Simulated scan of single mutants.
Amino acid sequence: MSKPTFTNEFKQGVVDYVLDHPNESKVAVSKKFGVADSTVHKWLKEAKNNNGTINSRGSGNYSSDKKKSDTDPKASVTSMLEKLNISKSGYYDYLKRKPCNQKIRRAKLAVRIKEIHKESKEIYGAPKITRILQKEGYKVSERFVGKLMKENNIKAHYIKPYTVTTKDCDFSSRLHNILKRNFNTKAPDEAWCTDITYIYTQDEGFVYLNSIMDLYSRKIIAWTLSRTLEVDEVLKCLETAKRVRKTANPVVIQSDRGVH
């Protein structure tokens, strides 16, 4: 099978389309025009070296293009336009056409929605974002904002209602309040205070922070992040503290056990 050939005009049309649609992937463009994506990259590189044009942007001789398309319909855009009853001037005018005011407005709104969504730590959905936009002077509806969020893959991450996670077990026969709220120790590593809380992170979202503080220096000597409240995660934090301090003496571990 012979290798398909393409006119300079067809190449230039593909290059202009890519430049006018920067958000569309090269793979999608190659499928739309029936050429390999590596070929599209090659044409873009050639156009870049020639100030955005493929050689001389074609000879303008439509009859030669038509003749080439008769032998290989995929080699020229001319035959495709003729079959679709579309003029060349109209086709290239479409490729160079600037976005309408509505598209520009939608693009600006999408940018602002992304900013509000990020500022809310990805919690706000369409209702709250709509109210913020309306206060800023934008005339938008909740339905329109929701549609823009869906088109741009912007989703609200809702926080689950607070649930009690501390198990109310009877430790009275095994655990005792040794410190009796006397948190002023006389030496390091006499008593450690532990706690668990949840925090928001940029990459992982909400996670649990396990921390251990030496009551003498009030310094955090160990901490770990986890996605669950499993006992193993707490024990990892304790093992880290033991490894850091290297103490052989007994240490009092103080925890509030979830009591407020």
Rank of each mutant, 00 (worst) to 15 (best):
K128T: 05
A126R: 03
Y158S: 07
K155V: 12
S211D: 01
L225P: 14
Q202L: 08
I196V: 10
Y162P: 03
L133F: 02
L175H: 11
R181W: 08
Y200K: 07
K147G: 00
S217M: 15
F171W: 01
L133H: 04
D189Q: 05
V145N: 07
F144H: 13
I132W: 00
L148R: 04
I159C: 12
N182Q: 15
R174V: 14
A156Y: 02
A156I: 02
S172T: 05
K219G: 02
A126I: 05
K139W: 06
I129K: 12
T163V: 09
C193D: 01
I123L: 10
H157I: 15
K135D: 02
Y138V: 10
D189R: 01
Y158F: 14
M213S: 10
S211H: 04
Y216A: 03
G125R: 05
A222S: 01
I178V: 14
P127S: 03
E122S: 09
V207C: 08
E136L: 09
S226N: 13
I221R: 02
S211N: 12
F171C: 00
T130D: 09
A156H: 05
E204H: 10
L175E: 07
P188S: 11
S226R: 10
A126E: 01
T163N: 08
K160H: 12
A156E: 01
G137Q: 00
C237I: 06
V140A: 06
Y198F: 13
I154H: 05
K219F: 03
T194Y: 04
D214A: 04
R131A: 15
K160P: 01
R181T: 06
V207M: 05
T165K: 08
T166E: 14
M149G: 04
L215V: 11
P161Y: 11
D189M: 15
G125E: 00
W223V: 07
N210I: 15
Y198D: 12
G137S: 02
V207T: 05
G125K: 01
L148W: 03
R218V: 00
H157E: 12
A222V: 01
T228L: 07
K147E: 11
E122A: 07
I178E: 14
L229N: 06
N177L: 01
W192L: 12
Y138I: 11
N152P: 03
F171N: 01
